[in-house]
Design a protein around this nucleic acid. Sequence first.
DNA 1: GCAAGGTC
Length: 869
Amino acid sequence: MVLVIAEKNIAAKKIAQLLADGAPKTDKVYSTQVYRFSVDGEEWVSMGLAGHILAPDFPEAILFDAERGWYSLTDDGEILPADVPDGLARPPYDSKRRPYLPDGINIKSWKVDSLPYLTWAPVVKHPAEKEIIRVLKNLAKKADSIIIATDFDREGELIGADALSQVREVAPDVPVARARYSALIKGEVCGAFDNLVELDRDLADAGESRQHIDLIWGAVLTRYLTLAKFGGFGNVRSAGRVQTPTLALVVARERERLAFVPEDYWQIRGIGASGDTAFKIAHATARFTDEQKAKTAFAHVQGKTSGTIVKVATRARKQAPPAPFNTTSLQAAAASEGISPARTMRIAESLYMSGLISYPRVDNTVYPPSEDLAAIVSGLAASSPALAPVCKKVLAGPMKPTRGKTETTDHPPIHPTGQGSPESLDGGQRKLYNLIARRFLATLMGPATIENTKLSIDVAGEPLTASGDVLVTAGFREAYPYGLKRDEQLPPLSAGDVIEVRDLALEAKQTEPPARYSQGRLVQEMEKRGLGTKSTRASIIERLYQVRYLKNDPIEPSRLGMAIIDALAAYAPRITTPDMTAELDGDMTKVAEGADTEAHVVDHSRALLAGLIDNLIDHKDDLGEAISDAVTADAKVGVCPTCGRDLVMKASAKTRGNFIGCMGWPECDVTYPVPSGVKLEPIEGDDGVCPECGAPKIKCKPFRSKAYEVCVNPRCPTNYEPDLKVGECAVCAEAGRHGDLIAHKSERSGKRFIRCTNYDECAVSYPLPARGKLQATGETCEHCGSPIVVVETARGPWRICVNMDCPGKEKRPARGRRGTAAASKPAAKKTAAAKKSAAKKSPAKRKPAAKKTAAAKKTAAAKKSASSR
DNA sequence: GCAAGGTC
C-alpha cells in the first residue's frame, strides 16, 4: 500500500481524485477521513493532517547549573542529565550576576530569575494532534511506501518533516519520498507524483527556526511583562514578533491623533431647490482657511433666496468591477459590513465545511483556467433564487473575469461553489455568503457607469456649486451594491435657469486628525508590512483585544497597550517593529538555501534577546508601575463624589461580577453596582458625570441592541421608578388569599423585580428586564394566570407574562419536548423558601410559579439526556 | 498562564 500524507483533508481528497483510476472511496480510520483508491492496480490511501501535528515547547522541569549544564530532577531528587539537542548553546554563566537557578525553580516556573535561562533553554516538540498522529502511525505501519504531499512552502516542508518523524517511530525502514505540487490540478499533481523528490531538510529547518525564535522571544517577553506587575491569573501581558508590531501600528496612529493640531476652516453651505427637488449647495471654495474672506463671501450671499445657473457640466466615469476575493480582501470587505476579520474566518470556515464556498485561506486573486465559472453561476442561480435573475444576465454576457494583483496557483480565489442550500443559513453566515456570492458574480460582469452632474451657480456674485452622482449603467453594481453611494439626482437644469436658494449658513469647522484603523484596514496594513499570514492576522488582532491592549472599533489602544509599547520600545525595540520579521525572513532563506544552519540562526537570535535581559530586569519595577498606572487608568470610570479619588471598575473576588469602587478603599467605601450581561464602557469628560447626583455615568452596550447611557447610582433621581401594581398574585389566589404583585426597583442593586405584597406567606419574586418603561395591562396570562405587563423597548412594546416559570414561556416549537414536559407538571418543584412557607402556613397547592431548584434542574437534564441516548 | 503557524 502507498500512503499519501497531505497537509489538510481537502488536499488529500483532491489528490486522491486526481491520481485515482476511477473514483476514490472515502473511508474512516478511527474517526478521521481517509481516501482509498488504486493507481495502475496498486492500492493507495491518502490522508490529510491538520497543519502542524507537533507543537514546540520548553521541556518539563529543566534546571541549569554551571557544572552539570541542563539537568532534571526525578521525584526522588535524583539528578538526570536533560535530554536536550546536541550542540545547544549554554547560558553564559557569571556567578556574580547570575546565580544557579535557585532550588525548585525551573524553566516551567514563571519567575523573573529564570528568564536569562529561558532565553537559552532547549525547545522540544510534543504531539499536538494526537488523533491524527494515531491514524498516521496506524497507516504507516501497513504502508510499503510513503509519499509526503504537504503544501509546497516552508511550513508545509516542516509539517511533512514532523509527520515523517512520527512515521519513523513505527516504520523505521519504509521508503519515504516527497511530492511537490504548486496547484491542486491534474497536470501539477500527476507531474509531482511522477517526479518524486526527497524531503528538503534545510527548508524544514528554516521553518523550525521560525518556530523556535517565535517561542523564545514570545515566552521570555510575555513572562517578563506579566511578572513585572502580576495582575492575577487571566491577566497575561503578551508580546510577540507579529502582535507587538501590530499593536505598535495602532499606538503610533493614536499618538499621531494626540499630536494633531486641528486647523480652523470655514464653509458656506445651504440648500438649492428647483420645482419639488431640493439639493445641497456649497460655495465653490470648499474650505476657506481665512475667516475674513469667508465672512466677506458670506455677507454677499446671506439671506439671498435665488441663484442663477451659470454652467451645467456632466461627466460620466466608469467604475471597474472588483477583483476576486482572497482572504485579505474578503476580510476587509466583510469588516465594512460589520463582521470582524476573526469572525469572518470562523464563518468562512463553516461555509467551506458545508460545501458552500471554496477554500477560504488564499492569497490568489486570479481564477485558474481550470475553473468552470459558468457552471458555478448556473449552480448559484439554482440554489439562490434571489440571485437567479442576475446570474442569468451573467451567463448571457461575455463573462470575462477580472484579475487581481496577486496570482498564485495553490487555490482559486474565494468563490461560492454553487452547490448546497444557502437558503437555510443563519444571520452572519447568510450575510457573508451573500457577500462572497455577489462578489463572485461582480467579477464576471462589466463596469458600472456613474454620471456626475456639476452645477455652477451664481448667488449675488459668489460662485456656488452643487454636485450629484447617478448610477446610469448598473453593470457589476447590479450584483454588488456594497459601498455604493445613494443616487443624488439633481433636477434637470440648464444655464440661465433661476433656482431657489435657502438656509445659507457660514459654518466654522476644524480639520480632523488621521482616522483610526478599522479592523479591515489593520489587516491590510499588516499584509503590506509583512506581518503575519493570511491565516493568522485575524486571530492576532483578536488576541490583542483579548489581552485588553485594544478596544473599540475603529481600533483604539488602551492605556495598557500604550504602556506596553512604550516599555518594549525602550528596552526591546526589536520586537516593536516589522524589521524582526523581515530579518527572520532573510535568515530563513539562508537556512533553506543551506548557507546557514538552524542552530546558528536560532542561537544568534537567542544572543540578541539575552543582550536585552539584564536591562529589562533592571527596569522591572519601573515597568510594573507603568503597567499598574495604565490598568487603573483603563478601569477608571469617574471621580468619587465623596472623596474625589478615582472610581474604577472592579471585579468582585467572590461573585466574579463587576462593580464600581473607589480607589480610596478602605478609607472610602463608595461602591456602585453595574448592570450584568452588557458590555460596559466609561464615558470620558463631563458627559461621564451625572448632572443630578455627581456619580459617574457609564455606557452600556447590550448584545445586538442599542447602547445606552445610565447613571450608576441606583439612588439617583434619574434612576427613580415608583412602585407599580401590575396585577394580582395568582399563587395567592390559588391558596385562597389575596396578594398584589408590585414592581419594585431595588435601591441597593438598581435591579427591578416583582414581589407579592403578601410576602409573609407568599414567596413569589420574579426578575424584570433591566430596561424599558413598565406598564400594567390588567390582563392575565392564559397559561398561568399571572399578570401581563408591557415593557417599552427600543424595538417597540414587548408583552410578557411576569412569571419567569410560566409554562407558556417554555413552549419552543423547534424543541417541543422541554415545553411539554414542563407544562405537564408545572407544580412539581418549588423553591426551598416556597416550600418552607407553604409548610408553615398553608397546604401545598398547585402553583403556577413553580421554580425549579438547581438540583431539580440537574436531575431533569440528566433524565432528558438519558432518554435521548 | 507564554508565540506564530498550520488547520478542525
